[in-house]
Design a binder for these strands. Structure first.
Lengths: 190, 190
DNA sequence: AGCCTTTCGCTACGGGTCGTAGCGTAACCC
DNA sequence: GGGTTACGCTACGACCCGTAGCGAAAGGCT
């Protein structure tokens, strides 16, 4: 459909102006030039609608080859932080995660639409680093190391940006990346 | 007041049964045997009420001396994870953080009532480790290292428990702690 | 005791959102 | 052109919000 894109765009605009809590289905319908019933015919409610509206923003995340694992990590962290600084994602991401703690289908929707798109970057970064010889080829991936690293990176950036509410500037990114890589190399020696 | 404790207790009970989104002020008032107006005379709204109701749970966090920095970190991570597994905190924490992105006074309330209580553990753990000689006495604290470590620990655990929605079991804690300590010791050598 | 200030319970209210039902209409498919 | 599908629109009961107004009970002061 063509209208779907307009609806999701209207949802993002409403998130910017109103934030999550004051966003209403009737408002989004009005912005999109669509009847309120149309929204309910395609989405179960506010939660699902916002997840879809925000999910496309995570497609912007990429992992350009910057030559070293350090530079690759710093690059993706900066991108992720910039995404979290946008008003749409800032107000929506934590809200839908909070809702998902009591809504299993919503949790699955978030996982496939948002979380997996981020985790792909971790897998790609590890493979590229292994190709460079910066990381050992060992069975590290089989024991959940990728999951661990993903939670550390995404968790630290989200916590810094949304909970501590302090800027993810270049200095912080440098120090965080150094800490993470130090831990990885230490684990590789053991 | 004595009624305040009953109200906060009723709020936590309502969070367990209804979750954040379906929790209503009238419901809490009924559970606490109190008029709805009484709630509004003491709290500005749902956000502030829930923050206060959940904040006291974070007083349970302690940092017993387990003999080594590794054991201390693992201990506090396990405690924090157990706290996040409780239905009250699971549904409330992300929700109030989401609201705080558009409400500066609420953000400050969260900071003083919840975040600072966690950060204290990081400071205490670092000082204890320095007293043991496990960490250098350098000016590390002056450049925001404590803040960095706090965001990494709290962020990773929260992300693992609430976003990835996978268990923070002993094996994960062991691996995470090893990663973090590896990074710290690597930074100490530089 | 008497008064007086504060605090609380209770009711009622206008305003707003929710999610759905019902119906008419325009576009699309063969 | 007939039939199906999708949409717009209105209206609706239900619920929650936050506040006003009033009466009652508790505690402080002299």
């Amino acid at each position: 459909m063509e209208a779907d894109a307009a609806i999701l765009e209207a949802t993002r605009a409403a998130l910017v102006e109103l934030g999550w809590s004051k966003l209403t289905m009737g408002d989004v319908a009005g912005r999109a030039g669509v009847a309120k019933t149309t929204l309910y015919r395609r989405w179960a409610g506010k939660n699902e609608l916002v997840v879809d509206a925000v999910a496309v923003l995570f497609d912007e995340l990429e992992l350009p080859d910057r030559g070293s694992l350090t530079a690759d990590i710093e690059g993706v962290v900066v991108q992720f932080a910039a995404l979290l600084e946008r008003p749409e994602t800032k107000t929506a991401l934590m809200a839908v995660v909070a809702e998902s703690t009591r809504d299993e289908p919503l949790r699955e929707r978030i996982r496939t639409s948002i979380v997996e798109r981020q985790k792909r970057l971790v897998l790609a970064g590890r493979r590229r680093a292994q190709a460079r010889g910066e990381l050992p080829e060992g069975p590290a991936s089989a024991t959940g190391t990728d999951d661990l690293i993903f939670d550390v990176i995404a968790g630290a950036v989200v916590h810094r940006a949304l909970v501590s509410a302090e800027p993810v500037d270049a200095e912080w990114v440098r120090r965080f990346t150094a800490l993470l890589l130090g831990g990885l190399s230490a684990a590789a020696q053991a």
